[in-house]
Simulated scan of single mutants.
Amino acid sequence: MFFSGKSHWVRLLSLVLLVAMLASCTATPTAKPAEPGADNGALQPLVDAAKQEGTLTTIALPHDWCNYGEAIETFKAKYGIKVNELNPDASSAEEIEAIKANKESKGPQAPDVIDVGYAFGPQLIDEGLAMPYKVSTWDSIPANLKNADGYWYGDYYGVMAFEVNKDVVQNVPQDWADLLKPEYKNQVALAGDPRISAQAQMSVYAAALASGGSLDDVQPGLEFFKKLNEAGNFVPVIAKQSTLAKGETPVVLRWDYNALADKKALEGNPEIEVVIPKSGVIAGVYIQAISAYAPHPNAAKLWMEFLYSDEGQLIWLKGGCRPVRFDDMLKRNAIPQDLLAQLPPAELYAKAVFPSIEQLNAARAAIAENWDKVVGADVK
Rank of each mutant, 00 (worst) to 15 (best):
K106C: 09
K103V: 08
N84M: 07
Y68N: 10
K78H: 08
E70K: 14
L86N: 05
Q109D: 14
T57L: 08
Y79I: 00
D64V: 11
P111E: 06
Q52C: 00
W65K: 12
E73T: 14
I59K: 06
A60E: 03
Y118H: 14
V113C: 02
E73N: 08
N84L: 13
P108A: 09
T55M: 05
Y118N: 02
Q109R: 15
A71M: 11
Y79S: 01
T58G: 02
A119S: 11
G117R: 07
P122A: 11
A60S: 15
Q109E: 15
I81K: 08
C66V: 15
G54E: 05
I59Y: 05
D112P: 11
E104I: 04
P88C: 09
Y118W: 14
N84C: 04
I96R: 11
I81F: 11
D115P: 00
K76Q: 12
L56W: 04
V47N: 10
T58V: 10
T74F: 02
D89N: 14
K82Q: 13
T74E: 13
A49S: 13
I72W: 01
H63V: 04
E97R: 09
G107K: 14
Q44D: 14
G117S: 14
P108K: 11
L46T: 01
P62D: 02
I72V: 12
F120E: 13
L86T: 09
S91I: 04
G121I: 10
N67S: 05
K78A: 10
P88R: 01
